[in-house]
Design a binder for these strands. Structure first.
Lengths: 147, 147
DNA sequence: GTTGCGATTTAGAATCATTCCAATTATTGA
DNA sequence: TCAATAATTGGAATGATTCTAAATCGCAAC
């Protein structure tokens, strides 16, 4: 990441943390940078490993705290599949996730707008806040290998 | 449940277990009956408690084993919300779940057919097996209370 | 019917992700 | 500068689930 980009992300981070009542700390900055570096939906454990490479004294508890703060201030999405470890995603555009059943990788799938589902009979009186969609299947790479 | 219904469910259970290579056991029958009795998406813990009322010696491990067998032979759906305990649902019709953010209850929402999502840009080469939709919001009961 | 074998059940130990805790350290506003 | 408040830390605790090894069961072949 260039220093210009980096400065922009830091400014956004600082602002978003502040408006949610969080402080700007080196750990939070670092964890956010780690997430931006490889957008591959790492688990907390993976974020911890990567963070330690350049911040060796960071603790697992802090990684959880940082991820939590980033989620709460709207910079990161927490992604859950079944009951496996949560994964973290710094893509805040409207999107859903594709899970490859072969390799387990997660891909972001862009959505035009808030998703709508056809044919759902929601009875009167239910107020919908949020609709979550996830797609399971086989990614191009694994589809290639299987042939 | 009437004895006629009960016989029908047992026959289906027996047949489905058999075709997946599982045996018909009193525990599996009992756990399935417990699920059919109140269709309220209980956790394994709740199934365990209810099962013990009429089968006091059943163990937690067996409840997990039975639920697992029922899921594998296609009689029960395992439902996960975030990383909370899995819930179990004997409704195998095409449907999705509505989670009330206030009271935590889960409601089945019927779907006409397999769900389709509008506006998703799935790149070439991805093979979709399954699409899962969940809805979050406020149920009629809680909406009433809030006013 | 008896026998044998693999499947199932069981209690308890182990695991995994996550949260909690209490002590230390850092940041911020007066 | 100094207190007040928040954040970090390592380790203990938690909660759901899976594993393990021994006992038991169900069923097919004899």
């Amino acid at each position: 990441m260039s220093s210009v980009e980096s400065a922009r992300f830091n400014a956004e981070l600082n602002q978003k943390l502040a408006t949610s009542g969080f402080r700007f700390t080196p750990q939070r900055q670092h964890v956010y940078e780690v997430l931006l570096e490889h957008r591959d939906h790492p688990t907390a454990e993976e974020v911890f490993m990567r963070s330690k490479q350049t911040m060796p004294d960071i603790s697992m508890a802090t990684v959880y705290n940082c991820l939590d703060a980033l989620v709460k201030c709207g910079l990161v999405r927490q992604v859950n599949l079944d009951r496996t470890a949560s994964r973290y995603c710094p893509n805040m555009k409207e999107h859903c996730h594709f899970y490859c059943d072969e390799c387990g990788r997660i891909y972001d799938i862009d959505l035009d707008a808030k998703p709508r589902v056809s044919g759902a009979h929601i009875p009167d009186g239910f107020r919908v806040n949020h609709l979550e969609v996830s797609i399971r299947g086989c990614c191009p790479e694994c589809a290639g290998k299987k042939k």
